[in-house]
Amino acid sequence: MSEADEGLQAERTVLAWRRTQLALTLVACLALRGLPQEGRMAMATLFLSLLVAHLICSGKQRCYARCRDGLAGRRASASVAATASLALGVAAIAAAGMTAILLP
């Protein structure tokens, strides 16, 4: 990696998290649109997607700092708790959305 590229990997990581947050906000907007028809399941999808989007927003700066430190030659480690909680959150959102679609 050249010196001119230093820090760009961390920037790309932050941008990927921002895209994920935007996608979750879009899911929340779609759930809000279906709220009159789907009721509680749409409310659960709305709440879960906004919660996960908020958690991503609050953890974004720590992720950027961790990636930047790893590029600077310091030890960088993956956050297992953040990755697991994101996976569980997305699975819960998908389950709530599928339940709202498949159950009358």
Rank of each mutant, 00 (worst) to 15 (best):
E3R: 07
A4D: 05
E6F: 07
G7I: 06
G7F: 06
Q9P: 03
A10G: 09
A10I: 07
V14K: 02
L15P: 02
A16H: 13
A16K: 09
W17D: 03
R18E: 14
R18I: 12
R19N: 15
A23F: 13
L24N: 01
L24W: 00
T25G: 06
T25Q: 07
L26P: 04
L26I: 12
C29Q: 15
L30P: 04
L32F: 03
R33T: 04
L35S: 04
L35A: 11
P36T: 02
P36Y: 00
E38Q: 08
G39Y: 04
R40L: 10
A42S: 13
A42C: 13
A44P: 00
T45R: 14
L46H: 05
F47S: 02
F47Q: 02
L48T: 05
L48K: 03
S49C: 01
L50E: 03
V52K: 01
V52P: 02
A53H: 00
L55H: 11
L55N: 09
L55R: 14
I56F: 11
I56Y: 03
I56W: 02
C57P: 00
C57E: 07
S58T: 12
K60G: 04
R62E: 15
R62N: 15
C63P: 01
C63Y: 02
Y64D: 08
Y64R: 13
A65R: 13
A65G: 09
A65D: 14
R66K: 10
R66Y: 09
C67I: 05
R68I: 09
R68D: 06
D69C: 14
D69I: 12
G70P: 11
G70M: 09
G70W: 05
L71N: 06
L71I: 04
G73Q: 13
R74T: 12
R75K: 14
S77D: 08
S79N: 15
S79T: 09
S79K: 08
V80Y: 08
V80R: 12
A82I: 06
T83D: 09
T83M: 12
A84H: 10
S85A: 12
L86E: 00
L86N: 01
L86Y: 01
L88A: 07
L88K: 03
V90F: 08
A91D: 13
A91R: 11
A92R: 03
I93T: 02
A94L: 14
A95Y: 00
G97E: 01
G97R: 01
L102S: 12
L102A: 13
L103Y: 10
L103S: 09
P104A: 06
